[in-house]
Write a protein that binds this DNA or RNA. Sequence first.
DNA 1: AATGGGACCTGCGCGC
DNA 2: TGCGCGCAGGTCCCAT
Length: 292
Amino acid sequence: MPELPEVETIKGDLEKTVIGKKISRIEIFNPKVIRQPQAAEFKRSLTGLRVKRVLRRGKLLILELSNAKFLTVHFKMTGQLVLRKQEPAGERKLPDAGSKKSITRVTFYLDPGLALDYNDLRLFGELRLIDDWRKLKFIQELGPEPFGLSLTDFKKMLAKKKTKIKPLLLDQKFIAGIGNIYASEILFRSKIDPQRPVHDLSPLEQTVLYKEMLKVLQSAIKHGGSSVDDYVRVSGKNGDYARFHQVYGRNGKPCLVCRTPIKRIAQGGRGTFFCSKCQAVPSSGARKENPR
DNA sequence: AATGGGACCTGCGCGC
DNA sequence: TGCGCGCAGGTCCCAT
C-alpha cells in the first residue's frame, strides 16, 4: 500500500531520525525479505555502516550508506519501517512481545539507543544491499516522477497510449509512484470515469487530470500519507490523509458531492472506486454512438 | 501493445 | 463456534 506519498513520508521521517546513525547490529527473523545478497552476507556487509542520505524513487525507499552502497526497501503491500528505543540490556524481548505473532522480519540496531524494525505481514517486501540502486531493472524501466513532469510531457505520454486511464495510472512504467488508492482518488477529483480509454480524454480533461494528480499527491504527503490497512509512519503513528479520501473503500456509500452510491468495479484484478454520476462520460456531439 | 491470469503471502470478514 | 472461501493489492512472469 505504501504509494508515493507514504514512501515520501517515511523518507522525511527517517531524515529527521536516522541520518548519521551507525548500524551496530542486525537481527534477521525471516530471511525471505532479504532479496540480495544472502542474509548472512547482508548482515555482515551492513553492520558498522552509517546512514548518509535517504532517497525515494517511485515507491522505492533508498538509504545511502557511508561506504557509498545502498540499502533499498520496497514495501509492496504490508511493509513498515518503525523506529523505537532500544531496550536497556537485560530487558530485551522479542519484537511485538505480547501480541500473538511478530511481523518484525528484520531489526536494525542503530547507535546510539535506537532500533529500526522492518515489519511485513505478508512478506512481499524486498530489502536489498546493492552497489547502485539506479541499475535495478525495475528502476531503469520506471516512468517519470509526477513532480517535475511538465504538462506538455504528460500529454505527450498520454498520446501514445491506448489503455484505460485507471490501469495506466497504476502502470509504474508510465508514471512512477501511483497505486490503487491514489489512482481512484485522482480520477474522482478529475471527474473522469476510470474506464475511459486514454485517447478519449479531451485536452482539458488531460490538463485537469495532471493538476489533480499533483494536488492529491502533494496534499497526501502534507498529511503524512493514508493509513488504510497496514501503513504507519516511522513513529508508528497513522498517516492522516485517509480522512480526505472521497471514493477509495467507500463502496455503496453516498458520494460526498452528489449522494449517488459509490461504485466498486474490478479493473485488472484490482478494485476501482468511483461515482458514476460525478465521473460520467461527458456527452459530446463529436462522440460516435456506442450502443449497449 | 494490451489484457488476463497466476504467483508470491497472511489475516480478516463473510456465509453456512 | 468453526470451517472454507474470497479478498486485499505491488510487482513479476507467462499466455493470448
